[in-house]
């Protein structure tokens, strides 16, 4: 009788009923197991099972789309943690941010969030640049390029709304300048061309407290209302929208024939 090799601890774990109930395919050793591993996992199923060789070459992909998504996840997690300590009111916002670096252990969460956001903006631009330079927006991927442009715009808007939250001089003036552009929106802003045409008799319909800027700020200037609105947009509203578009974006990558490549 041939002597049986003793099983290692690791194999014992991976063959236990508990493990097998979670990961049905076992350790991916064979070709079949590796394919099933991708197919059976809800997260990895974002990928196809097999790829053309050029799709795993960094020189082609730059990995920028993947990194953008990863940075989004980093920002989500660090953002949720920051919310535990931050109160979006004029009275507390600034001191809460101060406390973050001094009173909270390992106080680099804010740094991680802020620099991660800058990195995400750059990663998204570079992803767009890569997609343009490889002509990957061409049919059949036209619509996914459109979704990508919207995602980029949403990324910038997410970053912009987050800029106000520390409630320091940098924040309030950047948002004052930025939101005052909305004041000049044609027809919808009270200092935009055409706004004075929208009037009933002598009463202007588009005024300082009824235009698009007011809807954004929740007030006539950047104050309490603006802080709360930007907080809600930053933490819930825009992430909600961007996740919908991200789902469409990833889905369409697969449905439009996977990653682009030479025919």
């Amino acid at each position: 009788m041939a002597e049986k090799k003793p099983k290692s601890r690791l194999t014992a774990i991976s063959e236990s009923p508990v493990w097998k109930s979670i990961f049905r395919t076992g350790i991916p050793v064979t070709r079949r197991q590796r394919m099933m591993g991708i197919l059976n996992n809800v997260f990895l199923h974002l990928h196809p099972v097999r790829l053309p060789k050029h799709a795993v070459k960094l020189k082609y992909t730059w990995c920028m789309g993947g990194l953008s998504f990863f940075l989004f996840l980093v920002l989500t997690i660090s953002g949720i943690l920051l919310m535990f300590y931050y109160r979006p009111t004029v009275e507390y916002a600034y001191t809460d941010i101060m406390d973050l670096s001094e009173q909270v252990p390992l106080g680099i969460m804010r740094e991680l969030h802020r620099w991660g956001a800058h990195a995400m903006v750059i990663a998204v631009w570079l992803h767009m640049f890569r997609v343009f330079m490889t002509g990957s927006y061409k049919p059949p991927r036209e619509f996914n390029w459109v979704v990508g442009v919207l995602l980029m715009f949403l990324t910038l808007f997410l970053s912009f709304t987050g800029y106000l939250l520390p409630w320091d001089q940098l924040a309030i003036w950047a948002i004052t300048v930025g939101s005052n552009m909305a004041r000049a929106t044609p027809f919808l802003g009270h200092e935009g061309p055409g706004a004075s045409l929208l009037a009933i008799g002598d009463i202007n319909l588009v005024t300082m407290s009824s235009d698009v800027r007011f809807a954004l700020l929740g007030g006539r200037f950047v104050g309490e209302g603006a802080l709360l609105r930007f907080y809600v947009l930053h933490c819930i509203g825009l992430p909600f929208i961007i996740m919908i578009f991200m789902a469409v974006h990833f889905w369409r990558v697969r449905k439009d024939g996977g990653i682009s490549g030479p025919v």
Partner: peptide, 21 residues
């Protein structure tokens, strides 16, 4: 072009892509 590989020349996502990621 340098991105071109014959259609039958494919790699498995596990491990080739997953590890890069």
């Amino acid at each position: 072009v340098q991105e071109y590989y014959p259609p039958e020349d494919k790699v498995l996502v596990w491990p080739d892509l997953v590890y890069i990621e």
